[in-house]
């Protein structure tokens, strides 16, 4: 597990051997995930593994080719899960409260969040997460910013979104440029 402590900047400049090792490592991990999924889908039937093993191997090869492995941090993922579960539950409670309230307390608006995450998977992931968090809905995934529709524009969404961005960055093992503050 020494690999996990390697400095990220070093890991970005792969020498070919490191790259092969990196692909192999994430391939193994994906194979384990696919095996787990197969076990779930077949309700743990033993005789299904005859078909399952080649399917899992094939799926692993295809997934590594189509979606090349990116850096991620185990600790970041572990910390993200409870954060997300708690915030999305709160999101549901918040919107349910507004929908059930006799006077319907909403004042919608739009909010631009300037990206600090790099383009690609991290941004798409965050755009999806934002729609499930309290009071926010990602409306447009722009090149420079994420346009968010908010249910209550009186609230401060800047710090909230920056917190989410920080968490997502930690998951993908990315260090963000410093925040530009209130923009």
């Amino acid at each position: 597990m020494i690999v996990c402590t390697v400095d990220r900047r070093q890991r970005l400049e792969f020498t070919p051997r490191e790259s092969v090792f990196f692909h192999l490592r994430s391939g193994c991990l994906r194979a384990v995930l696919f095996a787990l999924m197969w076990w779930i889908l077949t309700d743990g039937a033993m005789d299904s593994w005859l078909v399952g093993t080649p399917v899992i191997l094939f799926a692993t090869v295809v997934s590594v080719v189509l979606l090349p492995p990116s850096s991620w941090s185990f600790l970041g993922v572990v910390q993200f899960v409870p954060f997300f579960l708690w915030r999305s539950l709160y999101g549901g409670v918040d919107v349910a409260r507004r929908a059930l309230h006799p006077r319907l307390p909403i004042s919608p608006g739009l909010f631009d969040h300037r990206w600090r995450l790099p383009p690609g998977l991290p941004r798409v992931f965050m755009a999806n997460i934002v729609s499930l968090l309290p009071g926010t809905l990602s409306a447009e995934l722009g090149a420079n910013c994420l346009q968010v529709h908010v249910l209550d524009e009186r609230k401060n969404f800047l710090s909230e979104l920056e917190k989410v961005e920080q968490r997502v960055a930690a998951m993908f093992d990315i260090s963000l440029p410093p925040s530009r503050g209130g923009e």
């Binding site: 999305s88 539950l89 999101g91 549901g92 409670v93 918040d94 919107v95 349910a96 507004r98 929908a99 059930l100 319907l104 909403i106 919608p108 729609s131 499930l132 309290p134 009071g135 809905l137 409306a139 529709h149 249910l151």
Partner: peptide, 25 residues
């Protein structure tokens, strides 16, 4: 609550808020 939001909220964006978050929870 999701269905009520869908029926009561004033535009498609706010309805999406209600449906997505409440139904997923």
């Amino acid at each position: 609550a999701g269905t009520l939001g869908l029926l009561r909220f004033p535009d498609v964006y706010t309805r999406l808020h209600a449906l997505t978050k409440a139904d997923n929870v």
